[in-house]
Write a protein that binds this DNA or RNA. Sequence first.
RNA 1: CGAGAUGUAGCGCAGUUUGGUAGCGCGUCUGGUUCGGGACCAGAAGGUCGCAGGUUCGAAUCCUGUCAUCUCGACCA
Length: 480
Amino acid sequence: MAKENKQEFVQHITPRSENFSQWYTDVVTQTDLMDYTPVRGCMALRPYGNRIWELIHEQLDGMFKETGHENVSMPMLIPESLLLKEADHVEGFAPEVAWVTHGGNEPLQERLAIRPTSETLFCTMFAKWVHSYRDLPMKYNQWCSVMRWEKTTRPFLRTAEFWWQEGHTVHATADEAQEETLLMLKVYQDFCEKNLSIPVFAGQKSDKEKFAGARATYSVEAMMQDGKALQAGTTHNFGTNFSEPFEVKYLSKEGVLEYCHETSWGVSTRLIGAIIMTHGDERGLKLPPMIAPFQAVILPIAAHKGGVMEHCEEAYKQLKAAGIRVKLDDRDNVSPGWKFNEWELKGVPVRVEMGPRDIENGVATVMRRDTFEKTTVPLANLAEGIQALLNDIQANLFNIANDFRLAHTKDVFSYEELAEQVDGGYARAMWCGERACEDSIKEKLNATSRNMPFDQTPIADTCVCCGKKAEKLIYFAKAY
RNA sequence: CGAGAUGUAGCGCAGUUUGGUAGCGCGUCUGGUUCGGGACCAGAAGGUCGCAGGUUCGAAUCCUGUCAUCUCGACCA
């Protein structure tokens, strides 16, 4: 009976190797991260998933503060006239805007967009708040949700409503704006690599792929375990594209009225999807310790026997005092074996088993989720031992993901090589810079340009697509 | 938005072809024995069959519409 049970449960998750997409959906829905709602394409974040987002929020917010940013809050609704002010912007977002048309029972004179992003609101307010060069730079951020009426949705990766942060800054000079754009890209890269253990490619987007209304867009691109690309974060330099229509101007030291230079940047709950797809395995989630809601879970074995619960509680206190996010699973209605599987499914980095045998020996049996390696740690320095393990797991997850990424990234020199490489990986190629080649690659290979790395050392002279003189080194991949 | 599939108890499913009392497994609850990789025994509870119309004496089952989810494609800062 027990064995049949287990098979049924494990079969629940479609094998990752068999159907990556289905595996992802199964993991997402069976780990209490989110649930579907009656609203089309909108998910509910459940406590476990929401806690991951809170940890991302806390840690990123700290990095924003360190780089001199402050949080503000803007309205959810944007009057249509404001959205229409920047031509490229409205063209880019119009197809996916949800509209409010009534206030109570009265039709509105002007319909209101539910924000798909808040550039237009920020610009309107910046126009009021910025007067002098003394007011600059103004570096703001907001944590909120936005809505985009997507045609097809997928949990975390593309939902109609999603939670994110959007930073918006105003600067006196083009140089400062560019510096800010690259600084925040670096912040995102560091956050992905250090906090989430997700290695990324940082670089500049092509004109075809850049943000609606931006002069330059940059991105950090992650690689999922099926070799497809996921844009993990972006930063934009708007130059004066928005400040001109919105009249965001300042009086310079020299007494001249100048347009401001603006930037924006954002990451979203999509990062949770990236974590799942980068680290997960056949048994479910594998969470990097830094954003794991529980970094360690203590499981009593034979809890009814003398001393077991007492020792577990003591260990709990010790770990908690050491600042480790720890859970004592003292449920008496499921067996230890059940708990093992459940917490592995939910991706808890370290499991601490405490049974009569451990207590006799003055140790705890500890298993790490990334390698399934079991060790014993003396109770006297349990906290130190587990903290060391957590650090090691954090680093190991990055290394595994990084090895995978490098193994699935290749320099390509011909169209045939490109076609082969984008089927399950990133292709690093030379490109003439023409939109036509990107369009053709998209149409024939279903791959898009991801970004152009900052190190532009050429690997060839001719475009991988048309054979004309190459201008740029660029990554191509199929993307989520 | 196009093609295909699915929607029945908390979860996984059968029942739909051929209309006739709402079923199974797991979980849940109660009591007891267990506890180092998904424990066992006994008893119990739990469902307007996605939603709205229609056909019929009678609809989970047939028809129409609609909503949601999945797969593939198109689209997509």
